[in-house]
Design a protein around this nucleic acid. Structure first.
Length: 244
DNA sequence: AATTGTTGCAACCGCTGTCAT
DNA sequence: GATGACAGCGGTTGCAACAAT
């Protein structure tokens, strides 16, 4: 007989689940996701826990719209590497592969629409990947380019990608080349790589004790008892980083 | 105000790579 | 070297929020 509680949960995460996950990651680090999923009592897969952490709960994440210089960097890096989202994401601290992927998809959609609009009414049917200026065989998904010169597409050359704060694309490329030579980084502490974040030990002696209690509390109750301020601080951290 | 279309984003799925045994 | 477990990646989907009609 299978208990309902044992069923693997899917779909949107609740605040309570988030809090739980954050605290378990603080206790055990952000590596052994199957283990984390198990000990947390969250009826989620390790995979799901990892995704939630990486894409939403990670303290180093930025929130909000991509800045122009970030957008330009995505263009440049995509032109160089294609759909290597995680690789691109490593060069944009605080941004996730998922976020960049979504941004790119949206961007391509807009471009497709602009292309469609620019075409004569007689020749336009529906917008497909084939109507995109950089589409190749048509076998790729519509935002999968893998290497058109996006800078040229945008009507700019690389030297014009002068980002704010006097940080030029040349500087960025140098940075990229240098960092590629030092890809192995210490596991401890947050690094530029984003994914190498390993939380400092924040285990609270009372935390284990609270575990069961917490899981039985409803949303309102948990707000009163849980280290919510600690949880919020991660989101605040992310928001603060947007504002500089 | 109601309906329909569009957009943005969170989350899942399936596959591949890596590592320990 | 073979195998299994797990982490990570890229593609895709579903849905809520918003805009347009």
């Amino acid at each position: 007989m299978k208990m309902v509680q044992d069923e693997i949960r899917k779909g949107p995460w609740t605040e309570k689940e988030d809090i739980l996950l954050v605290n378990v990651v603080h206790l055990f680090g952000d590596r052994r996701w199957d283990y984390i999923a198990k000990v947390s009592g969250l009826n989620r897969t390790g995979k799901s826990c990892r995704l939630r952490w990486v894409n939403y709960l990670h303290p180093g994440l930025k929130r909000g719209k991509m800045r122009p210089q970030e957008e330009r960097l995505v263009m440049e890096l995509h032109a160089k590497w294609g759909n290597r989202w995680s690789r691109i994401a490593r060069k944009l601290p605080g941004r996730t592969d998922n976020e960049i992927k979504n941004y790119w998809r949206t961007h391509m959609r807009k471009m497709a629409q602009e292309t469609k609009r620019a075409m004569s009414p007689s020749s336009s049917t529906t917008t497909t990947v084939d109507s995109l200026p950089f589409s190749g065989t048509g076998k790729v998904s519509f935002y999968d380019t893998g290497g058109p010169d996006m800078a040229a597409l945008a009507g700019k050359n690389s030297s014009e990608f002068q980002v704010e704060k006097g940080y030029s694309m040349d500087d960025i490329w140098k940075d990229i080349e240098m960092s590629e030579e030092n890809t192995i980084k210490p596991l401890s502490n947050y690094s530029e790589e984003g994914r190498n974040f390993s939380c400092p030990s924040m285990a609270s002696p009372s935390w284990e004790y609270c575990w069961d209690l917490l899981w039985k509390m409803d949303e309102e109750e948990s707000k009163m008892f849980l280290p919510t301020n600690q949880f919020l601080s991660y989101n605040e951290y992310g928001r603060a980083s947007i504002n500089g």
